[in-house]
C-alpha cells in the first residue's frame, strides 16, 4: 500500500494538496473568527470583565447576576412573545399567500415581487417607516382622525404593554413575503398527478390541502421555522430603529441587552454571558436541523 502511494507522481500529489490549500484560508478564518471567538466570549463570561476584558476567573457569577436582573427577564420575556408571534404570523401569512397565489392567479408576476420586496430593505429602513406610520401624532391614527374617525386609537408604539407587538408587525411585514416564496416553491414542487389522484378520490379542496398538500410541505415548514427562529433571536436593528428598546425598556431584546451591557454599561462579563445564552438558544435549534440535513444528503 505504501509503495503505491510513494509511486504517485509529483503532479498527482500536487493535485491532492491544492484543494486543501485552497480551502485552508477560509477554514482558518472560520476557526479563528467564529469558533475561536466563541471560545473567547464563553471564557469572558466567566470573568469579571467590566469595560475591558479581564482574565480573572469568577465562575458562574455573571450568569447568576444575569438571571437576577429584571432587565434581562424583560428581554427574555419579550423574545418569547416576539419570536412566537413572529414565527406564527409569518408562517400563516406566508402559507396563505402561497396557497392563494398557486391558484393560477392573474397578475402573479406582479404580486410576487410586491410581497417580496421588503426582504431587500434594511431593518433600519423598515423601522424608520413603521415608527412613523405607527406614531399616533402623525401616522395612521392622525390620518383616521382627519378622515373623520375621531375615536380611532392606535398608540401601541408609545404603550409599554403593547410596544413589543409593533415590533412584531414590522418584522412580519419584512419577512412574511420571503416565507411565502419558500412555501410557493414547495407547492410548485408537488407532483400535480398526486393532486389529480386525490381529486379523483373525491377530496374537496379543503381536504386536499389539509390532508395532502400541507403534510407534503413539511420540509418547507421546517426550513421556515429554522430561518425565522434564528432571525428572531438575532433581531437587533429593527428594535433599535423602531423603538430604541423603549418606551422605557418595554421592547428590549437579548440582542439589545447584550449590546448595552457590553458597550455602554461597562459590564462586559454580563454582556458576554447573555451572548452565550443567545448562542445556546440558536444552537439548540440549528444543530439538530443541520445535522439531519447533512445526514440526509449522504
Amino acid at each position: 500500500m505504501a509503495d503505491v502511494a510513494r509511486a504517485a507522481d509529483f503532479r498527482t500529489r500536487l493535485q491532492q494538496w491544492i484543494p486543501k490549500l485552497v480551502l485552508s484560508p477560509s477554514l482558518a478564518a472560520i476557526l479563528f473568527f467564529v469558533y475561536g471567538f466563541i471560545f473567547f466570549t464563553v471564557y469572558l463570561s466567566f470573568t469579571g470583565s467590566k469595560m475591558l476584558p479581564r482574565y480573572d476567573w469568577i465562575g458562574i457569577e455573571n450568569y447568576v447576576r444575569l438571571w437576577g436582573l429584571s432587565h434581562w427577564w424583560t428581554a427574555i420575556t419579550n423574545l418569547g412573545i416576539f419570536a412566537s408571534l413572529y414565527i406564527i404570523f409569518c408562517t400563516l401569512i406566508g402559507l396563505a399567500l402561497a396557497i392563494f397565489l398557486d391558484q393560477k392567479i392573474r397578475g402573479e408576476g406582479m404580486l410576487r415581487p410586491i410581497y417580496l420586496y421588503p426582504m431587500a430593505l434594511s431593518f433600519i429602513v423598515t423601522g424608520t417607516a413603521w415608527k412613523w406610520f405607527l406614531d399616533p401624532g402623525i401616522g395612521l391614527e392622525q390620518t383616521m382622525h382627519l378622515w373623520g374617525w375621531e375615536s380611532f386609537e392606535f398608540g401601541w408604539i408609545k404603550d409599554r404593554d403593547m410596544a413589543i407587538y409593533t415590533v412584531v408587525i414590522a418584522a412580519v411585514w419584512q419577512t412574511s413575503g420571503f416565507v411565502m416564496a419558500m412555501f410557493l416553491a414547495g407547492l410548485r414542487g408537488i407532483d400535480n398527478e398526486l393532486l389529480k389522484a386525490a381529486q379523483i378520490d373525491g377530496a374537496s379542496n379543503w381536504n386536499l390541502y389539509r390532508r395532502i398538500v400541507i403534510p407534503l410541505l413539511r420540509p418547507a415548514f421546517l426550513s421556515a421555522f429554522v430561518i425565522l427562529a434564528h432571525l428572531a433571536v438575532k433581531s437587533y436593528d429593527l428594535v433599535i430603529a423602531l423603538t430604541g428598546g423603549g418606551p422605557g425598556r418595554a421592547t428590549e431584546l437579548p440582542a439589545t441587552f447584550m449590546y448595552s451591557y457590553t458597550f455602554t454599561r461597562n459590564s462586559m462579563g454580563i454582556g458576554a454571558s447573555s451572548a452565550v445564552i443567545m448562542l445556546m438558544t440558536i444552537a439548540a435549534i440549528m444543530v439538530p436541523y443541520l445535522y439531519s440535513e447533512l445526514r440526509e444528503r449522504k
Partner: peptide, 21 residues
Amino acid sequence: SITSGEVSIRGRVINGVHPSQ
C-alpha cells in the same frame, strides 16, 4: 487509487501517474 498490485501500459507501471499522463 490502486490499493495494491500494478497496472502497466506498454510495460510502464502507471500506478500513481496522473490520469492525463
